[in-house]
Amino acid sequence: MSMKTRVLGPVQVVRLDGALDSVSSGEARSELGSMVRGGATRLVIDMGNVSRIDSSGLGALVTTLKAVRDRGGELVLCALTPSVRAVVELTRLHRVFDIYDDADVAARELAP
């Protein structure tokens, strides 16, 4: 899995590529945690290129969401593929994450 970040004003859009699973979730959790501790508290996670997600990957996203909220920020997801959306809905986490179709729209929503 790879991770690329672009900055849109006060918002950071993080694009994940590849499988967000038990092999890669530890690295994702660590890198996203570092970003949050470094002050990035308005995050858009672009899932458009996530080929597969499992419970480990979801756990990494939940951990990051909690860290962001603890700092008064917000994290949203966007561009979920049908299979990733199905997993998010099965775990009822669509009740917790705000989900957008498009990264730019999500970034505008997060800008103060």
Binding site: D54, S55, G59
Partner: peptide, 22 residues
């Protein structure tokens, strides 16, 4: 199964334990 997450209560947001449910 993990608890149904409450959007207003971060303590109910599961960071693990979802695998068997899936």
């Amino acid at each position: 199964p993990p608890p149904d997450p409450d959007p207003d209560d971060p303590d109910t947001w599961p960071e693990g334990g979802m695998g068997i449910m899936l």
